[in-house]
Nucleic acid binder design. Structure first.
Lengths: 230, 230
DNA sequence: ATAGTATTAAGAATCGATTTTGTAAATACA
DNA sequence: TGTATTTACAAAATCGATTCTTAATACTAT
C-alpha cells in the first residue's frame, strides 16, 4: 500500500482558506502524481492521522474527489482510488476530444492580445523545460514539466468564454493525468515539442480548424503511446 | 426564506444506503423543484435541524452538490443556492448541445432492440401524461410529468456507451432543470408533444443526423421560450 | 466627526467520541 | 461434515460539542 510521505505535509489554514480545501488539493495532487495505487482503499482514519487532521476534514475532501471521479465512494465501504481500464480511457479521450476541441475553437475566436501573449509565454516556458529525468536507470516525467504542460494546454483554451466547458476540460485533464501514470509504462518515444510548437502556431494564426486538427492528432498519439507499450 | 416543508421528510437509513446519500438526494430534488431561491444561503445548522440529522451529514450533502455546481461554496462563508444569469444559461445550453448531441449519435449507433423498446415505452408514457396543472389560477408544470420528461430524454441517450458523456449530460440536465424554475416564468406556448414524437421517430429510424437536428431545435426552442416572456 | 481598535454574536469549520455496519472467525447445531 | 448462528473486530458513518472566522457594533483616541 501507498502511505503518506512522512512529515512532508502538515495541513494548516493559511489565508482565508480552509483545512478541507488544503487537504483536498494535497490529496488530489498526490493521487494525480501516482502516490496511490488504482483501486487501493483510502481509509479515512489513516489519512486523517497522516494529515494530522480530523476525520471530518478527510471525509469532506474525499467526498469532493469522489464527485469529481478521481475517487470511488462505496456506501458503507468507504473510499478507494479510482481503478483504470482501457475502455474508460477511451471514454475519457472521446469526451476530451469533444469538449476541448470546442473550447479551443471558442478560445481562438474570443482570445484577445493578452491571451495571445500568454500563449506565447507559456509555450516558451514549456519549450525550455526538460520533460524527463533519470531516477535509477528509469526515465520519469519531471513534475515541473508536468505542471507547465498542464498550464500550456489550459492557456490554449483559457479565452473560451464558457465556464461549463472549461470545467469539463479541467476534470477530464485530471482523469487523463491519472492515466498517464498508470497506463502501462509509456516510453518517451515521440517529439511532443514539435507538436506543441505546431499547435501554438496554428492557434496564434487563428486557424481554428487546423488547430483542432493538430490537437486531435496530439491527443490521439498520446493515447496510442499509452497503449502501444504493453 | 424558503424553509423545509415541516414534517414531510425524515431522513433515515433504508437498505444499505447512508443518511448522507438520502439527504443529498432530497436536497438536490428540493433545489431542482425550486424550493430554495437562487443565491439564498443554505445554513448547515438550519438544514440539519430540518432533516433531523447532524451537521456532518448536511455538510457532506452540500459538498457533493457544490462539486456538481448546484450549490455554491464560499470558504468560511458556507453554502448558498447557485444564482442564475442569462449568460450562464447560454453556457449550459451550449455545453448541453455539444455533449447531448454526441451522446444521442452514439446511442443511436449502439442501441439494441431492448433500448428501442424502452424508448417507445417511455415516449408513450410521456405522451399520455399531462404536463400542466392549475394551482390558484396559475399553470405550473406537474412533478410527475417533469420526472417522465427527464426519463424520456435520458432513455434517448441511454445506449451511449460512454459513461463520462452520460455523466456530463446528467449534470447539465440538472442545471437546465434549475433554470426551468427560475428563468422568468415560462408560459405553456408550444407543442412539446409534437417535438417529442418527431424526436422519437427519428431515433427509432436510426437517423442520427436528423435526430440531432430535431434535438437541437427542441433545446433551442426551450431556451427561447425561457427568455421571450420577460 | 473619524479613523482605528475592542466586543460580541452568528454561523462555519473542525474535532474526538459514539453508534452503526460489514466481515470474518468462532461456536453451535443438524 | 457442512450449514447456521454468535461473537468480535475494524472501519464507516454519524453525532454533539468545541474552536475559529467573519462581520457588525460599540468604544476609544485623535
Amino acid at each position: 500500500m501507498c502511505l503518506k510521505d512522512g512529515v512532508s505535509f502538515m495541513a494548516k489554514r493559511n489565508g482565508s482558506s480552509t483545512l478541507s480545501e488544503n487537504v483536498t488539493k494535497k490529496l488530489q495532487s498526490d493521487i494525480l502524481a501516482g502516490q496511490y495505487e488504482p483501486g487501493s482503499p483510502l481509509t479515512v482514519s489513516e489519512l486523517a492521522k497522516g494529515f494530522v487532521v480530523s476525520v471530518a476534514v478527510v471525509r469532506e475532501a474525499l467526498t469532493r474527489l469522489a464527485t469529481q471521479g478521481l475517487v470511488l465512494q462505496n456506501p458503507n465501504h468507504g473510499f478507494s482510488v479510482k481503478s483504470v481500464s482501457e475502455e474508460e480511457l477511451n471514454s475519457i479521450i472521446e469526451a476530451r476530444l469533444l469538449n476541448e476541441s470546442e473550447a479551443l475553437r471558442l478560445s481562438i475566436t474570443h482570445g484577445d492580445l493578452t491571451w495571445e501573449s500568454n500563449v506565447i509565454a507559456v509555450h516558451h516556458k514549456l519549450s525550455q523545460t526538460a520533460e524527463y529525468e533519470e531516477v535509477n536507470q528509469k526515465l520519469i516525467v519531471r513534475e515541473e514539466w508536468s505542471d507547465i504542460h498542464r498550464q500550456f494546454h489550459y492557456e490554449l483554451i483559457a479565452a473560451c468564454p464558457n465556464p461549463i466547458l472549461l470545467g469539463f476540460c479541467g476534470r477530464l485533464w485530471n482523469l487523463s493525468e491519472f492515466y498517464r501514470h498508470w497506463s502501462f509504462q509509456h516510453q518517451p518515444n515521440r517529439d511532443g515539442r514539435a507538436e506543441h510548437k505546431a499547435l501554438t502556431d496554428a492557434v496564434l494564426s487563428r486557424d481554428s480548424e487546423h488547430a483542432v486538427e493538430i490537437f486531435r492528432a496530439h491527443i490521439q498519439l498520446t493515447v496510442d503511446n499509452l497503449f502501444d507499450q504493453r
